[in-house]
Design a protein around this nucleic acid. Structure first.
Length: 533
RNA sequence: GGGCCGUUAGCUCAGCUGGUAGAGCGACAGACUCUUAAUCUGUUGGUCGGAGGUUCGAUCCCUCCACGGCUCACCA
């Protein structure tokens, strides 16, 4: 599947777009794929769709032998417009309104700025997901006057740009409109009025609060910034962007992508990048869109605590970008882990499916890998079973792994992956699993529960079975033995199950008993049952 | 008002460049004298939103319409 023919046949959206980029942009020694966002709030899983979409296309291009530059632009020179709800001491932060977010202190007091805090939260999770963009910080770029020429070009074509923007506006932009904003060197705020431009590098403005006026040189100042709708096409030109997707809010006629396309052509003399539109992601059970300003968001880290990295990639690789989907933390988690495991078995041929399905699933599996595809099928511990093993081991992940048959000889890498899955399973059990899924194993020192004579005899018989003949049993035969014991004592099997669960976990139900007893093992079962012998 | 997307079995959705439809779940039946949306087997199930058009042939292309949703028109 890694050969070229298979890639050409692939109908995966990442491959289709990779082919489209090569076709439309022509052969290039290096393709630039861009992504970016404003770190003006917690970066949530919806924002992540931007990065992962680019990542998957980048992967597809590289699979074709292309060299790719993957850039991620943080617009940390954006304006601090409102104080998010999740910020401590919110009232204290009101004074920073209209400052560039890179100049707003970190409310959590660990990073150099509010913007940086949001950036770090995301950047720190990307390596786990196998995503390694080159980060570009807009504030650094502007402050170093890297975009001076791009700004000047926008000023030269000011009328063209205004006309383009006016095509879709209700109110036309005024004559005094300029494609730039200025951060006052007196107050740090963007509450300024551009007064004039000298036709070269000089921009004169007035600080609305202090009343001061000043002329800045674009080649040396960092205070002048392009407005968003112009900043975007300017950067396409500056970075030579070949591909950049965008959220659906940008892709309507008159939206920012639409006007950026015209501006990059008419002002910067370059063709707009290949693109596609991606839809929003919602959170199942919470309803509605994710709002980063409300503070109640699901971050990438939150998702990684329940879904191992391959699952996260699988979620996005397996869904068309223009389809909305809801991420969920309920019982769906089990199904999604099962889906991933099936996808893996299909890739390795241990589960038979039709050829079309196999090709599709195989490609999704490849794209879901954080690094290289494993050489052989890794050992799978089903998520649900893992949850049971972990509860038996009271959360000891290695112990849970060791109790699973076949884990003796696994490689370090394989064990590492299982550990990650185990951590997710344990988090899920403790935070999201329905009560029915949870249990705490008894130790054996508790006072015995009351049993009638028949129940007591059945429990004794089962204890003896575990002590003397466990080695003879597999799950099926042990299950049969349980029935036989119940029948011999004249009680319903159901009653014996109930009693056993009460003894073992103090609840009326639990994992399927025969398998459960086998997993617990002779020693452990006998310890819990010793008061009933 | 502009633009985009969707409308396929009860539900959630697949259906590459056109050759009269598939999966999972559900429902129903049976099996397992046990259970973690239990598992297994089988059955059921669709005028592919509507009307035209192109074609030997359209779920798939074109036009129009209906319904649903999103988005832009302020900022980013």
């Amino acid at each position: 599947m890694s050969n070229k023919a298979a890639l050409d046949e692939s109908v995966h959206w990442a491959d289709i777009h990779a082919d489209k980029i090569i076709r439309e942009r022509g052969p290039k020694p290096e393709y630039t794929c861009a992504s970016g966002i404003t770190p003006s709030g917690t970066i949530h899983i919806g924002n992540f769709r931007e990065i992962i979409s680019v990542e998957l296309v980048v992967r597809a291009l590289r699979d074709r032998g292309e060299t790719v530059r993957f850039i991620y632009s943080w617009d940390n020179y954006d304006v601090f417009r409102k104080v998010p709800k999740n910020v401590p001491n919110a009232e204290r932060f009101a004074e920073y309104l209209r400052w560039p977010i890179i100049s707003v202190p970190d409310p959590w007091e660990t990073e150099s700025s509010y913007a940086r805090a949001n950036e770090v939260a995301l950047e720190s999770t990307m390596p786990e997901l196998g995503v390694f963009p080159t980060y570009i910080y807009q504030a650094d770029q502007y402050r170093a006057s890297v975009y001076a020429q791009g700004i000047r070009t926008a000023l030269v074509h000011r009328d063209t740009i205004r006309a383009i923007l006016n095509e879709h506006r209700t109110e036309p932009l005024p004559d005094a409109w300029w494609p730039i904003s200025v951060f006052s060197t007196f107050t740090s705020k963007d509450t300024t009025t551009v007064l004039d431009w000298d036709g070269e590098w000089g921009v004169r403005y007035r600080c609305n609060e202090s009343g001061n006026e000043e002329t800045l040189d674009l080649r040396s100042t960092g205070a002048v910034k392009l407005l968003w709708r112009i900043d975007w096409p300017m950067r396409w030109k500056h970075e030579g962007v070949d591909f950049e997707p965008a959220g659906k809010e940008h892709h309507s006629a008159g939206g920012s992508f639409d006007t950026a396309k015209q501006i990059v052509r008419q002002v910067y003399g370059q063709e707009p990048p290949v693109t596609f539109k991606y839809d929003f992601i919602s959170i199942k059970g919470r309803g509605g869109k994710i709002s980063s300003s409300s503070g109640d968001v699901v971050s990438v880290r939150d998702v990684l605590e329940i879904y191992q990295p391959e699952l996260v990639r699988h979620l996005f690789a397996g869904t068309r970008p223009n389809a909305e989907f809801a991420i969920s933390f309920d019982l769906d988690v089990i199904k999604l882990y099962e889906d991933y495991d099936r996808c893996e078995r299909i890739y390795f041929g241990t589960e038979e499916v039709g050829e079309k399905r196999r090709l599709k699933e195989s490609r999704i599996y490849q794209l879901s890998q954080v690094a290289e595809v494993p050489a052989s099928q890794p050992l799978q511990i089903p998520f649900r079973h893992f949850c049971n093993l972990l509860q038996i081991s009271a959360g000891n992940i290695d112990q849970a792994i060791d109790s699973f048959p076949g884990t003796e000889g696994i490689s370090d890498a394989e064990r590492a992956r299982l550990r990650t899955r185990g951590a997710c399973a344990w988090n899920w059990i403790n935070r999201y699993a329905p009560e029915d899924f949870r249990f705490v194993l008894k130790e054996g020192g508790e006072p015995p529960i009351e049993l009638d004579p028949a129940e007591a005899a059945a429990v004794r018989a089962l204890t003896a079975e575990m002590r003397d003949r466990l080695a003879d049993h597999d799950e099926k035969s042990l299950a049969q033995a349980i029935y036989d014991i119940a029948a011999a004592q004249g009680i319903e099997a159901k009653q014996l199950f109930l009693v056993m669960y009460r003894i073992l976990v103090g609840k009326d139900q639990g994992p399927r008993l025969a398998g459960f007893l086998l997993t617990l093992g002779r020693e452990r079962v006998l310890r819990i049952l010793r008061a009933y012998e």
